[in-house]
Design a protein around this nucleic acid. Structure first.
Lengths: 116, 116
DNA sequence: GGAACAACTTGCATAATGCAAGCATTCAAG
DNA sequence: CTTGAATGCTTGCATTATGCAAGTTGTTCC
């Protein structure tokens, strides 16, 4: 559950050890948008492979960013949601969305704040 | 110089296609801290391999985030600096630093704003 | 000219990613 | 029941990226 061996005590480096890849923040984006099921993440337009999705969800749970719970709306199924620690990543996502919209042409917004 | 093929038009996805790895944002951190030479990036505590550093610098130049210029202070040597597009990533770094400091124990600050 | 340094490049082993397929539950219909 | 479809994964394997060490090129500096 803790860090195995960090590259340095720098907060940037340590944060990137957790979210520094092409997929993790996309899953967090989806969670912030209200998605909660494995298949919902899978259906996102980027097309994440199921083994990577599975791996990232497990990593996020390990790091206390996401928690797994039994879905009430869809009984018997698993679901995922952000913890407080995970929700605290919203400003990071917001900054990334802003930069993308302003500096990469052809991007269009889709992240708002659906709920806390 | 442009995007080859993006995964989706989402600004998060497109931004991660550029900076979504464990090393790129560390280089940008160093640039924001005023570092400009290849060997300075190499000396950062995380210990980036030279081939990856070389690859990432080239990618960043391709994406218009960093520009190469002949060093005046150290004549005959190459140097790198952020473009306006690159400097615009500062809020992303700031959000990451903040999250790291608040949610990962044992991290200590080192990013301030040395200059614009 | 030759040592020292900076900035890379190359080669190769290991790890991560991408893709397709397979497996175990659950649930609803027949 | 028992099939059949859907969900939530896991496994196998090819491809790509990363990590490490070593080698190469181009300057300065004496």
């Amino acid at each position: 559950m803790m860090d195995d061996q960090r590259r340095s005590p720098c907060p940037v480096s340590c944060t990137l050890d957790v979210i520094g890849d092409k997929w993790t923040l996309l899953i967090i984006r989806d969670l912030l948008l209200g998605k909660s099921h494995f298949s919902e993440f899978q259906k996102s337009p980027e097309g994440i492979a199921t083994n990577i999705l599975s791996n990232r969800l497990a990593r996020l749970v390990d790091h206390g960013i996401v928690e797994k719970y039994p879905s009430t709306s869809n009984p018997g199924r698993d679901a995922y949601r952000l913890t407080a620690k995970g929700k605290a990543l919203r400003p990071v996502l917001r900054a990334i969305v802003k930069w993308g919209l302003e500096h990469i042409e052809g991007t269009s917004r889709e992240l708002d704040q659906p709920e806390s």
